[in-house]
Design a protein around this nucleic acid. Structure first.
Lengths: 123, 123
DNA sequence: GACACACATTCGTCAAGGCGTATATAATGG
DNA sequence: CCATTATATACGCCTTGACGAATGTGTGTC
């Protein structure tokens, strides 16, 4: 349980989880939206992976991350509630806005030309 | 928000929060039930106090601690859900059992003779 | 196979915080 | 006021993990 909360106890990781929500997102979008170095993003994603809070899927050159609900019911509820809390936060909402902008007109972001857009998690 | 989760990211602090639940508890009971050194308990309680997750009340020589729900609604819900999760954990339930034993027959525990028993928080 | 791209990992440095031990403070009782 | 009890804090040591910078790995393309 310690591990679980340690995974949540970092601003960058909370921002990543907020962006994922119920979507599957490519690393390049994280880097763009958070405006942080790629190694930093990657390290935090690795931490979340080790904590079994997200899973990664490779698609060609790109890696997609999504949240995986913990098997334990209590933990899942806490995570859900945490995500709901994040949605109410102003800074987190800004991240969301930035993500939408990057998705809907990726042409504006040269770095993302052709990058796979975030998609809603099916199952 | 980081601070909030950092406060939850420690086994000892989770055990303390679990014991408090909706009760107000004296430090000496924490020491007895967790079986850890008094300074350790005290340090973790101080941490929770700084995180504004608990408040202390003095009663003569004794200090009583209780959980204070954060003003932010989202945070409060996460904390509530966390406490619910703790209740389902076997180790946490054992702590509860030990607490009840100490309360109902304090005579068995010489160290606690005369210590103020835990009480349900009124408001 | 050489290159470019997307991402992951490693390395050295640094701060936060956990621990045991020792000591300080606060209240009560003689 | 001095001793005792209950709790808090200070100190030194050690581990975890965050960071930037550099480097490694995997996958398409020519």
């Amino acid at each position: 349980m310690e591990r679980f909360f340690l995974a949540l106890a970092d601003g960058t990781r909370l921002r990543l989880l907020n962006l994922m929500g119920e979507h599957e997102i490519c690393v390049c979008f994280f880097v763009l939206v958070l405006g942080q170095s790629q190694p930093k993003i990657s390290r935090h994603l690795a931490y979340l992976r080790r904590a079994e809070m997200v899973t990664a899927r490779r698609e060609g050159k790109w890696m997609h991350y999504r949240i995986t609900m913990p098997p334990n019911e209590g933990a899942a509820k806490v995570l859900q509630q945490t995500l709901a809390w994040l949605k109410e936060d102003a800074a987190m909402q800004q991240d969301w806005t930035r993500l939408r902008r990057a998705c809907c007109s990726p042409a504006k972001f040269v770095a993302l030309a052709g990058a796979p857009a975030p998609s809603v998690v099916s199952g």
